[in-house]
Design a protein around this nucleic acid. Structure first.
Length: 493
RNA sequence: GGUAUCGUGGCCGAGUGGCUAGGCUCAGCUCUGCAAAAGCUGCUACAGCGGUUCGAAUCCGCUCGAUACCUCCA
């Protein structure tokens, strides 16, 4: 399944470009992972689910993909009680936790949540604290290249110097002169030559818990350095795709480019991809403002925002109905609409197996299939893909009503394409078809009630038949009278 | 203030010069003991103003509005 006409919107050039990997058939992709000092919220998840789609589709096309996504587990914790803004930090202090206990707790939470969303784990998931040595080596190289200076045990990147020979701001469309003239309040960062300079190494204050020895001081690495260290270590000095949330574009990714160019004299990344924000009430979901919702609270329904619980796969389907590059606003109404559409799609997929075949096809399955690929090849346009998948619902119904015909061979292609896109590429799950022993017993019991009700209907004992139907409905079991008999579905109420 | 993105029908959300996006809602119909479910059909919008063009939601300009970044956040 090698399709060569994939196009990706490159944030660096602000245009859609034909994707050509550095090494034919193999792709290196780096995505900035979470800072594990609190639970991942749904906005964080959107980014990782967007890149899960990218990862899955690239693999589906037959590429060998090395997907590296880091865990940021260093440098943020302080023990001084001055900042007081981070409730997790407060909690860690309150419960006398080691910083690494906090890290462990939220790393586990992150993995658990992503597994519920059926996201594939990355190929490599390196941690910042596991790569202190590599980070120090990069700082030494940047100093040797003349793009960094040390002051009082800390090391800073010299943005002005870098800008003389390179272009600082190339990614985010900023230019240094403007930034300097628009500098805000002069903070008490007296160690820096310029406010635009950023720390590569920071000397630890006495109260700072996480600290490592270095040639300059006992301290900790700068915020932006870990990604440069780990991406180049596992993917090389120049690799294919670097992704992350839009909010990391500046300064984080800008600084990554500067560090890598200062160090390796080459642009580190060919295609920059930025996913847009998930908003709640029109505002970005954000840990610091408290405007967010936690995935688990959505699954259970225990929240003030939504009318009912939603399954992880429905939430994912909802997200994929918008393009990753667009802001997506989150609401109960929009989710309910997606859930209904999702159920209709899955219902159609389930009856696809029983579709009657004919000698000839009246529908053009091949061109439908191609349009699915065209959608994904156009910058991973999942909303268009899903629109095409909904066409399959009409196909299936028309086949079952005898209005259209399909050959055995085409039906196989049809089924394969649906399975490929629904489950391999989108990574959805069919909630209803997860049969356990309990649900089989439940089915048997309900089948019996259906028989009793149909007998009552045949006897025109509608009081009895309606009682069975209504009382089951009250328990969240809905009976559906179709042409070929009665089926049922479980709703979450 | 600077940088960037965006403003699409009742709602969500694609589309970047001419061709019905799609989903949900709603209405009508089919089916049904009734209802639900399911299916079919229908509902033609692009913030405002000007410009370019045979033709603009789509390109250009201006106005208004929204969001993000410029400080840790996906």
């Amino acid at each position: 399944m090698k399709h060569q006409d994939l196009h990706i919107y490159n944030s660096l050039t602000k245009s859609k470009e034909k994707f050509t990997p550095i090494h034919e058939g193999a792709i290196g992709m780096y995505v900035c992972g979470p800072t594990v000092y609190s639970n991942v919220h749904l906005g964080n998840c959107r980014t990782f689910l967007s890149f899960d789609l990218v990862f899955r589709y690239l693999k589906h096309l037959g590429y060998k993909v090395r997907y590296v996504r880091n865990i940021t587990d260093a440098g943020h914790l302080e023990n001084d009680g001055e900042s007081g803004d981070d409730p997790i930090l407060k909690k860690a202090r309150l419960e006398q936790l080691e910083p690494m206990e906090v890290v462990q707790k939220y790393t586990v939470d992150f993995h658990t949540v992503m597994a519920k969303f059926n996201a594939l784990p990355p190929s490599i998931e390196p941690t910042a604290t596991g790569h202190i040595y590599e980070q120090i080596a990069i700082i030494e190289k940047i100093i040797a290249e003349g793009f960094a200076y040390q002051k009082n045990g800390s090391v800073y990147f010299d943005v002005m110097k870098f800008n003389e020979t390179n272009n600082y701001g190339i990614l985010s469309g900023r230019n240094l002169e403007d930034m300097i003239s628009n500098t805000r309040e002069l903070a008490a960062q007296t160690d820096k030559k310029n406010p635009q300079d950023f720390a590569l190494w920071k000397k630890a204050e006495p109260q700072h818990i996480m600290r490592w020895p270095s040639p300059w001081s006992e301290g900790f690495p700068g915020w932006h350095l870990e990604c440069t260290a780990m991406s180049t270590k596992y993917l090389g000095n120049n690799f294919d795709i670097h992704g992350g949330g839009m909010d990391l574009k500046f300064p984080h990714h800008e600084c990554e480019i500067a560090q890598a160019e200062a160090c390796n004299h080459t642009s580190p990344v060919n295609y920059w991809m930025h996913t847009n924000m998930l908003t709640l009430n029109g505002k970005k979901m954000s840990k610091s403002t408290g405007n967010f919702i936690l995935p688990n609270d959505m699954f259970t329904g225990e929240n003030d925002v939504l009318s009912k619980p939603f399954s992880p796969t429905v939430i994912k389907f909802f997200m994929y109905q918008a393009h990753y590059g667009s802001i997506l606003d989150f609401s109960s109404e929009a989710l309910e609409a997606s859930e209904k559409g999702y159920n209709r799609l899955m219902d159609a997929h389930r009856v696809l197996d029983e579709a009657p075949t004919s000698a000839k096809s009246s529908i053009d399955i091949e061109s439908w299939r191609n349009s699915c690929y065209e959608a994904m090849n156009d910058d991973f346009n999942s909303p268009i893909l899903i629109a095409h998948l909904f066409e399959s619902v009409k196909f299936v119904n028309a086949l079952n009503e005898g209005k259209e015909t399909i050959s055995k061979k085409d039906l196989e292609i049809f089924k394969k394409t649906m399975d490929d896109f629904l489950f391999d590429v989108l990574g959805l799950q069919d909630n209803a078809s997860e049969g356990s022993q309990d649900s089989e017993k439940l089915s048997a019991a309900i089948e019996l009630l259906i028989q009793l009700r149909n007998q009552a209907r045949a006897d025109k004992d509608f009081a009895m038949s309606d009682k069975i139907r209504d009382e089951l409905a009250a328990k969240g079991i809905q009976l559906k009278d179709g042409k070929d008999g009665t089926t049922f579905s479980l709703s979450s109420l």
